[in-house]
Design a protein around this nucleic acid. Structure first.
Lengths: 260, 260
DNA sequence: AAGTGGTCTAGACCACGGC
DNA sequence: CCGTGGTCTAGACCACTTC
């Protein structure tokens, strides 16, 4: 008696499968991702604003012709991403506009996020082999050839920061021929070298401007500066770039969020 | 015809429910959380080490007498927490010990994590009502009564930092009577006031030591200092405490991790 | 009472990786 | 081939909130 209903269910499932195949080919994505995308689009296009209610699990299930669990999965993982907020017994709502805390962004991207255009002047760009500290930060032998790229960052004709980047010369051949003055280094690495940047560990402290930096940044000598040493890793955990930066403290403050 | 199998299923479910009630009373938690706890315990107790395989979804389902989806939910959300790592076609494995980056820790906790004992001297501890900036950071009216607590942090008889905390006086009555010189403020808030600290937003910049701070921290005037302004929120998102800190740059560096 | 999210079942098929 | 995780169904009951 048990095997009969089992077989029946199996048949029904297969029928459902046949029906679902074209739906899947709608864009080749799993159903829950299609639902997520449809919600994301409505948020991005301004049809849904922060605080607005999103369709309930049951409504989404009906609309997209999926089971409740699938609709639920879509909403639950949107919540995990911080796109929506769910409240039991009430509903699901578009989350407040995300503030991107602790995001690894290039100088260009940071400026752009504040509606400013970044500019930079290349002061030095050569391959050298006597930078043991930088080599060590990149987990390379002490006398490895490294690309050293020193840039003065400015916006609105005012110098903001001095950044020196170090990268393995063997890993990034031809990098010095790229338009470093114009284009974002992050962009070049990601596009031309197919590199996926993952995360960065930063050490932050305060230091006093030495004569050269004072002149470059146009501040008095011994003025306090924010110093950031940053090792940037690929998604695979490989050290890709070491950046030593000095930032005018009257023009920068670092914002971070910590969690308990 | 449809209603008959439906009723049958319903009966079966009810029977299962009756069986499940004692199981649920095992500790009152949902099944997926019980599974998670059993895995967590085996990791904490050293039965499972980083890299070790965890029981598969199917095994867990059998062991804990739950459906596959429930076992799956347990593993999926353990992965989200970073406790385990899942690899399709291979299995689920205990994740490498987490490095706690960007963790909100009290001074006492930070010192303890480096095997140092924190000490602090209370320089000022009173309720005042003319601190509009602090009140604003706490989302209070400008002339609200706030507790102002100024402490000199030191270890090994050397002054490290000057921290000034502000808290709502009405929210934390009697706080000034607590043993602030000895005990961790975080600990007092969490224990005595049943407060769950959630996260903190920090603004970091560099500044020069003014005469008073220079003397307190025993550094030359105009020496560069790390200045951190920190608003600490409860898990519910309520601003609980505002901390303004000055840190000797030769004794501190802030370490953070950013993600792309 | 009606609607919402949270938990759960007992199965199914798929894509992937190692043997 | 077989075991793994990933997706999915068509329901169910519960806890919670609002009306």
């Amino acid at each position: 008696m048990k095997s009969v209903p089992t077989k029946t269910l199996e048949k029904e499932r297969r029928a459902n499968s046949r029906e679902r195949i074209p739906a899947k080919n709608g864009n080749g994505l799993p159903a829950y991702q299609r639902i997520q995308n449809s919600i994301r689009k409505r948020i991005e296009s301004g049809q849904l604003h922060p605080g607005d209610a999103v369709a309930s699990e049951r409504d989404l299930a009906k609309i997209h012709q999926v089971s409740l669990m699938t609709a639920r999965h879509a909403l639950a993982s949107l919540e995990r991403e911080g796109v929506v907020e769910r409240r039991r017994g009430i509903g699901t709502f578009v989350a407040a506009p995300k503030i991107h805390f602790n995001k690894l962004m290039s100088y260009t991207e940071q400026m752009a996020s504040r509606s400013l255009t970044a500019a930079s002047k290349v002061l030095f760009a050569k391959v050298i082999d006597n930078e043991p500290e930088a080599a060590a930060r990149l987990s390379l032998p002490p006398t490895s050839s490294v690309i050293k790229l020193e840039r003065l960052r400015h916006a609105a004709s005012e110098a903001f920061a001095l950044e020196t980047c170090y990268l393995s010369a063997t890993e990034f051949p031809g990098l010095l021929e790229a338009p470093l003055g114009r284009e974002s280094l992050f962009g070049i690495l990601e596009r031309n070298y197919k590199l996926e940047l993952g995360y960065a560990d930063e050490e932050v402290d305060a230091t006093a401007a030495d004569p050269r930096i004072a002149e470059l940044l146009n501040v008095p000598r011994r003025d306090p500066l924010l110093r950031i040493r940053q090792v940037i890793y690929s998604t695979k955990g490989q050290a890709v770039m070491y950046v030593l930066g000095f930032y005018r403290s009257d023009r920068h403050n670092l914002v971070i969020r910590r969690f308990r």
